[in-house]
Design a protein around this nucleic acid. Structure first.
Length: 574
DNA sequence: GAGTTTGAAACT
DNA sequence: CAGTTTCAAACTC
């Protein structure tokens, strides 16, 4: 509408209240929780305090808004809503010299808001993505009803009417902001953590629910009725999965693939994003793509959904299956897909649960002659190791920073990351299969549920037990030394005291780094050979990684809490 | 795309 | 603070 800024490409991305400029200072100052308010908020308040409360041409509704003397009540929170990691990452340097953590963490210092990214169609891994457009009619986009306003961005290309949430109407905006802050000092940040929802009819499993929409379980602060938005609720998992995949069509497609509804692989490309990837994907059989997409998203779901326990079991199965589907001769996954290994909500509802939609005779990965079962297995368990170690190390690090001084132990844990050759090892695993997993193979295999003798996985039950054990140990390790709480919500809260966001970010980053190394190895592998077949392999691998990153970015955008710069770094570093 | 439902925000 | 109204998004058809 009238909101378009002409002043350069950065202009539309600029957040109201000079967020971008001031957040640097805010981040720099935000050393501890309960830090003072961000500068942009101070500015807003001071603007508000000095605002001329004139008769203005404001329509009736705005005129009704009261502007009493500003109270200097500062919300005792860090600005999670804006950039969850901004306030925390800088002051918590990784204790463990993990692989390239600083590379990945540094971009977090750049000022970029979730919304500003959405404004920029060139980001998101090249997939254009529009900012969500409001359609306000009566609020002039100066109430929290307006999503743009509530998120601290100018309306840009919205379908709103009589919009005042623009740079041109800055004075009005700031007045409105002041009014909002007066009523709700935390209105512009940390909202989803400070308030609870009040849902009555939706079971907190629809986007009406703020908690659900923010991808966080309901808490004690909520006053909801019949809440199903809690850890461990199957219904929630199902809803979250749908929510995060952000596409019913995608789910249906994936399910169709699983159910065998797609039929023989065709050379048709699948319409995920025709613009940027068509060239790469056109030769891929459709059903393969669907499956790969499916598993990538499935995997992402577990990567990105905050949960108290980062289950290595849940990570291992989909990842292993993904890699098998993507790279191995199928069907020979180490975990039989479609069976009870998959959570019920992604299992095929009807037909033969073991039929994944690709025919044994039809499906053959381009890499089927290159990769071997053992490589994928080793790689999967290695990722699980990385993730588990990160899960252990980060809380330790936090304890140290918080004054619990168990330095020796932390140093010991750090040692796990000192294998700076992992990257190379990983590539060797691809290029020189015989070298794979030389170190501690026996112990690793045992701990990760592989039968050393025949290279096959242990039974699911055994594996599950082992993984549960590991997770339980992890939780016990990191729980406050008081009581082992049984309530999932309470657990969730105690975990959040240790900074689960950061924990998952770090886990995620490590695992993704490994995954990328692996894929890069494949790309290199294909490139070196130079023939058409291997070039396709290389392309496919590259495509896979792109898809992975793009999917991650898209999901990130959906979850306001989640850090997104990591992903852009992943893509950029590709 | 229109109409309905929903729950937060705004208001009394 | 409770109750009501307004609002815009989510959802359904």
């Amino acid at each position: 509408m009238e909101q378009r800024e002409g002043a350069g490409e950065a202009a539309p991305m600029m957040r109201q209240l000079d967020f971008a400029a001031n957040f640097t200072a805010a981040a720099a100052n935000a050393n501890v929780k309960g830090n003072s308010q961000p500068k942009w908020l101070e500015e807003a308040n001071s603007q508000h305090a000095s605002a001329v409360l004139g008769p203005q041409s404001a329509p009736r509704q705005l005129a009704r808004t009261k502007f009493p003397p500003r109270k200097m009540v500062m919300p005792p929170k860090s600005p999670h809503r804006e950039l969850p990691q901004m306030a925390e990452q800088p002051q918590s340097p990784p204790v463990a010299p993990v692989h390239a953590p600083k590379l990945a963490l540094q971009p977090l210092l750049k000022m970029e808001s979730p919304k500003s990214r959405e404004h920029n169609p060139e980001q998101n891994g090249g997939t254009p993505k529009k900012q969500k457009q409001c359609r306000c009619k009566n609020s002039r986009c100066l109430k929290l009803y307006c999503e743009c306003f509530a998120n601290g961005v100018y309306c840009d290309g919205c379908n709103c009417v009589n919009c005042y949430n623009t740079k041109e109407k800055e004075a009005d905006r700031k007045e409105a902001i002041g009014a909002v802050l007066e009523r709700k000092p935390d209105a512009f940040y940390g909202a989803e953590q400070s308030r609870g929802c009040n849902c009555k009819r939706t079971g907190c499993l629809k986007k009406y629910c703020e908690c659900f929409q923010a991808n966080i379980p309901c808490s004690d602060k909520c006053k909801c009725v019949d809440c199903k938005n809690f850890e461990g609720c199957e219904e929630r998992k199902a809803r979250l999965y749908h929510h995060s995949a952000d596409s019913v069509a995608f789910i249906q497609q994936a399910n169709a693939a699983i159910n065998g509804a797609i039929g023989p692989p065709s050379k048709k490309k699948v319409a995920f994003d025709e613009t940027s990837r068509g060239k790469i994907t056109k030769w891929l059989p459709e059903s393969h793509q669907v499956l790969v997409e499916y598993y990538l998203h499935f995997l992402l779901f577990y990567f990105l959904t905050p949960s108290t326990s980062f289950s290595s079991l849940l990570l291992l199965f989909p990842l292993s299956n993904l890699l098998h589907v993507a790279f191995m001769k199928t069907p020979e996954p180490c975990f039989s897909p479609g069976t009870s290994y998959l959570p019920s909500f992604v299992q095929p509802s009807k037909p033969d649960p073991t039929n994944l939609g690709f025919s044994k005779s039809l499906y053959r990965s381009p890499l089927s002659g290159i990769l071997r079962l053992q490589h994928v297995n080793d790689f999967c368990k290695h990722l699980v190791e990385v993730s588990t170690e990160a899960a252990k190390t980060l809380p330790e690090e936090r304890k140290m920073i918080n004054g619990g001084i168990d330095v020796n132990r932390a140093a010991t844990l750090c040692g796990h990351y000192e294998d700076s050759n992992d990257h190379q090892n990983q590539q060797n695993a691809v290029e020189f299969p015989e070298n794979t997993g030389n170190r501690d193979r026996a112990s690793l295999r045992e701990s990760d549920g592989y039968d050393i003798q025949n290279g096959r996985p242990l039974s699911p039950g055994t594996l599950a037990l082992m993984c549960d054990e590991r997770d339980a140990a992890f939780m016990a390790d990191n729980a406050p030394s008081t009581v082992a709480e049984s309530d999932t919500r309470t657990n969730s809260e105690s975990a959040s005291a240790l900074g689960p966001d950061q924990l998952y970010v770090e886990q995620e980053r490590l695992v993704l780094t490994k995954l990328r190394c692996f894929l890069n190895g494949l790309i290199t592998c294909g490139s070196i050979e130079g023939n058409e077949f291997n070039q396709k392999v290389s392309q496919w691998t590259h495509h896979l990684w792109l898809q992975f990153c793009v999917g991650a970015l898209q999901k990130r955008e959906k979850s306001r809490k989640s850090p997104r710069l990591l992903w852009s770094k992943c893509v950029a570093g590709d």
